[in-house]
Write a protein that binds this DNA or RNA. Structure first.
Ligand SMILES: [Mn+2]
Ligand SMILES: [Mn+2]
Ligand SMILES: [Zn+2]
Ligand SMILES: [Zn+2]
Lengths: 137, 137
DNA sequence: CCTATCTTTGCAACAAAGTTGCGTTTAGAT
DNA sequence: ATCTAAACGCAACTTTGTTGCAAAGATAGG
């Protein structure tokens, strides 16, 4: 897949830094923590990485997930999301062994009955446990 | 309710600082961010507050919730939880207007079907929207 | 009630995570 | 090839959370 087109379509300039980030994010179906990405792009400035990820999130190329420990991770959006209003309403899964965070695209957010007066706008489900490959071992 | 007993039962010493923290946490059905508590206890040392909250969480007096923006909040456990293994499996609700975080004790975590091989251990549901009092206005 | 002991607190210093300002470099339009 | 707005690198700063240590406080036993 050609990421240059997607980046340019979102109104961002195509740069080597942005291309390499989006390429890594496209590997597997995972969300990457900032620290992991910093290690991968050890020559890239920390601030640049922050800005690339935030810009990508802003234009709808990636979405952000914060786990229960407060670690922020970024994952590529499958279907292109309209700006600022992400439509990735899927469940996220965090493996306790390999610590990878998976986007379960096919598992949709559940419907939940709220107490009287409360109105849901957005829902976020995070599941902790064993991923398929760690479960096998 | 006498919080001294609960604190002592968990093997912690009863101090003015701990009593005042647990008292504030018992107001409403809300989870408080560290920053909010710091403002309330403006004379208390920041580190002391961190230690009180972490100790309370460790012994099972409070539970911690991290929202989608990465803000950590603390809420009193209703039924006393066994150490380190919290049984508060209820849904949390974050109001977009008043920014309060509510513990919806009566709304239990949903059951979710995972892809083959994945095994759920713990589940966390966070809902964003309008709380009952903000919805009325 | 007093003392001894272990816990908790406050302060200072540090670490990790994220942001802002600014000068330089670069993408890409003309 | 030139020009300009966007992106980058660097330094400084903020916010959030942790650690070490000495002083103060809680409580059990005498
Ligand atoms: Mn995802
Ligand atoms: Mn709760
Ligand atoms: Zn795994
Ligand atoms: Zn509200």
């Amino acid at each position: 897949m050609d990421f240059s087109v997607q980046i340019r379509e979102k109104g961002l300039k195509v740069t080597p830094a942005r291309l390499s980030v989006i390429e890594v994010l496209s590997e597997g179906n995972q969300a990457f923590a900032h620290a992991e990405l910093e290690k991968i792009f050890d020559t890239m400035d920390r601030v640049t990485l922050y800005r690339i990820l935030n810009d990508f999130e802003y234009v709808g190329l990636v979405h952000k997930i914060v786990d229960a420990e407060g670690i922020t991770r970024f994952a590529l959006c499958k279907k292109s999301c309209p700006d600022k209003h992400h439509t990735d309403d899927h469940v996220h899964f965090n493996c306790q062994i390999c610590h990878k965070m998976f986007c379960l695209d096919k598992v949709h957010e559940p419907q939940i009955n709220l107490p009287n007066g409360f109105k849901a706008e957005r829902l976020q489900t995070l599941i902790y446990g064993l991923c398929n490959s760690c479960n096998a071992a």
